[in-house]
Design a protein around this nucleic acid. Sequence first.
DNA 1: TGTAGTGCTACACAATTCGTAGCGCAAGCT
DNA 2: AGCTTGCGCTACGAATTGTGTAGCACTACA
Lengths: 89, 89
Amino acid sequence: MMVLLDALGRRWALRILWELRGAPLSFRALRSACDDASPSVLNQRLAELRDLALLTSTEEGYALTSEGQRLGVLLVDLDRFAQHWAKKL
Amino acid sequence: MMVLLDALGRRWALRILWELRGAPLSFRALRSACDDASPSVLNQRLAELRDLALLTSTEEGYALTSEGQRLGVLLVDLDRFAQHWAKKL
DNA sequence: TGTAGTGCTACACAATTCGTAGCGCAAGCT
DNA sequence: AGCTTGCGCTACGAATTGTGTAGCACTACA
């Protein structure tokens, strides 16, 4: 758990998983989806998430693995929470 | 959602919420629960999470708000995922 | 008047991230 | 062959963020 919290608590990590939840994206597409995050960090995060077996690089671009998609589902829950939460803020 | 992803994607943010999921903790107790993170960042994160209304400071220490606890529930789901995921790694 | 514990600040150092430029490569066109 | 276009990704100085340690101001209790 701590390993995961640590990995997800790095810049763009959660965002990358969120942006890939639907379909695979190319490096550049992912980058522009992530507010043009700097390519160095982006690539570093991709490598880390790949090491954690949460995503892989396919011919169609970067895509979540089956494990990554399980995590993606949790992010959808998080999104539901975010909407409920935004109203009360 | 982006606001939330950005806030949670900062060092110790997720960890703080995770450590507070059970009971309130004092500043120092929280600090030692978080691998003795440096007090400056810890305090900064606490201020940010307080601004987002996810936690408050009570007489018993720092505690999740009702919104924070809703998020805490999602972290428990994340923990279940983490355990399943750790086996496959 | 001391001692012990608290929340928290200060500050120099280290690590991380940003922003921009551009390399090397493959595909397609002329 | 040459030329362009788009790709994944690297390089690197500047800016931002986090670390580690010391210790202040305060309260409670002896």
